[in-house]
Write a protein that binds this DNA or RNA. Sequence first.
DNA 1: ATAAATGCAAAATCTTTGCTGTTCG
DNA 2: CGAACAGCAAAGATTTTGCATTTAT
Lengths: 145, 145
Amino acid sequence: MSKLAEIERRCADHKLRMTKQRRVLLRVIAQAKDHPDIEKLHRRTRFIDPTVSLATIYRTVRLLEGIGVLQRHEFTAGRSCYEVTPKRHHDHLIDVESGSVIEFRCPEIERLQAEIARRYGYRIIDHRLDIYAAPLQSSRKRQSS
Amino acid sequence: MSKLAEIERRCADHKLRMTKQRRVLLRVIAQAKDHPDIEKLHRRTRFIDPTVSLATIYRTVRLLEGIGVLQRHEFTAGRSCYEVTPKRHHDHLIDVESGSVIEFRCPEIERLQAEIARRYGYRIIDHRLDIYAAPLQSSRKRQSS
DNA sequence: ATAAATGCAAAATCTTTGCTGTTCG
DNA sequence: CGAACAGCAAAGATTTTGCATTTAT
């Protein structure tokens, strides 16, 4: 099942009406390989259908976050960006020079977090681990390790 | 050396002028036991000296962040809050019911992060680990474990 | 048919900034 | 004295919302 079809099914499950604007936005979201912010989503959506308004992007993204289709991040202060909620959780390493984002998993860190929460008498609802880092060989082509 | 005196010294080191408004704000900052946002800082400062303006809070907080006296956090979207940069780094567990914040340290997690960054060819500039959690016995007095 | 969704513009929030007058050093 | 700082109000930036109209089911 394609990512797009899967998202559309989840929208249907939640009784969201499939308008033409939403169809376009969902397509943009499903195709995104990065973590676009609202402005990017709007631009990409408009490229396909210039009539889609900014307000609709905001409203729809908010809905999608509400039903768990999208996940919001705040890599830079005062501006949210989004990704389709991944099947398996991952955290993010943000390249402070290029702004690009690397996704990584570390079950060991997850385990330690749960342990910490438990120690204080809590259960984890959510967590966010963002690593801001600079390439070891700055401003050069990076060689593969 | 008191926390306040220490902060004032660091301001002097950076050639910041010690105005009456700053003196009051620094006192508020040094006394804070929580992670106040701009509005709280303004309110507390005004309580001591009602003439201090919001713009001054913003400008001074920004300066203080710049010289490393303050650290900014974004526990809730679209609103920054601050704490005096701690001597030893720690992360945060946010109680999603009360909004209160628990500070914790986990060197093991730090180590794993550094390892991850290195694996991808990066060195860590900064990182943020916020755990959002609910108390195990919700809405009750928590007993010590 | 009707409840939901859209577009537009206005409003709401949070933060920054231009300007003028004041103050620290 | 001169550069830095303060207050105020206006401007920016991002996000939300009221309202009239359109659309999916």
